[in-house]
Write a protein that binds this DNA or RNA. Structure first.
Lengths: 182, 182
DNA sequence: TCAAATCTGGTACTGTGTCTCATGTTTGGA
DNA sequence: TCCAAACATGAGACACAGTACCAGATTTGA
């Protein structure tokens, strides 16, 4: 049911844009009340993000699984592989939705808020790999490393979604992005 | 006048937090109407950001002024010097306001929206330095480089504002952040 | 079959942001 | 000095997101 409403919301937003789709529009199309909508989703943005399951914990586990011999940067890149593969495996609709997110300021803001949660999840492991004090808030290296990695993901997603239809593979784009820095 | 309202807004938000300060509260304290408030500032968030002048164009010019012999990463780091100095020179109030921004999701989102504008301004010059096609949307290197730099700035600001009062200099923190990556 | 738990819809409310219209208030000539 | 155009301000209505509370329906399990 939740998934069904999310699908309808996605359709409407792809068709008319995010701002020009009101919650009432979605409710009318899904034949539910406003009350029920907000019982399903804490906010209008989440009607979109609800589809893509939260991969933060998977990402953390993938990072932990990387050998210590890898630099933090390389380990991050490899830990991202499963996530990237998931994007590549998904159908065109996911790519269009991702583009909508990347190009709509309000959605992008919420997306980065989600990324901030990933960021938190990854801090401990990156900190360990750097041999840093996890509680030392004056050490910016952990946040810099994680933030820069996620910035590369964002750059790659932007390039991937705004480019031509049969474009370069996302994994290759991400390689280019991350190699350009470290 | 605008600056005065912004100062009052800052006071209230520092005292009671961002969400718990309504536009009406600010209007009452500043003795203006809601209409006038929204004529001064396009949104509640901007009552805070209105204080700090937009340094995006300065940043771009500073980057252009760096010699071509520097790598893009180094050039970015050096171009950030004037901005960093400005932060360090400002009084304690600016540091508290910055902390408020960094720790309040809604404000952070808007702040990153501003950064996205900086990002756009810097694209052309970074693209030139990389010898990339500025219109090639499939090349993620430019966005990755700029995004990662700004992520480092964010990491540094977070460390700087949440740390102890007579902490490490911001420029040193930023060095640590950017050196940790490239 | 009954009763508790859950799902749903309705209504009223707060808060941000937009819009329009009616007052002032300033400014710059004649 | 007076008039008029430009401008700033305030008031009110509105759209929309999100919250809180309550009442009725539906399901679930003993």
């Amino acid at each position: 049911m939740r998934a069904e409403v999310a699908a309808i919301a996605g359709d409407l937003m792809l068709e008319r844009g995010y701002e020009r789709t009101t919650v009432e529009d979605i409710c009318a199309a899904a034949e539910i009340s406003r009350s029920t909508f907000f019982r399903y989703f804490p906010s209008k943005e989440d009607a979109l993000f609800g589809l893509t399951l939260d991969a933060g914990e998977d990402l953390r586990e993938a990072l932990v699984a990387r050998p210590d011999s890898e630099t933090p940067w390389t380990a991050m890149r490899r830990a991202l592989d499963p996530l990237i593969e998931k994007y590549e495996a998904d159908d065109e609709r996911v790519r269009l939705l991702t583009r909508l997110v990347v190009t709509t300021p309000a959605l992008l803001a919420r997306h980065q808020e989600k990324n901030a949660r990933w960021h938190e999840l990854l801090r401990a492991e990156v900190s360990r790999r750097l041999g840093a004090d996890p509680d030392d808030r004056a050490d910016p290296r952990v946040d810099a490393l994680v933030g820069a990695s996620l910035a590369c993901v964002h750059a790659a997603l932007t390039a991937w979604t705004t480019g031509e239809r049969p474009g370069v593979k996302l994994s290759v784009i991400l390689d280019r992005a991350m190699d350009a820095i470290a």
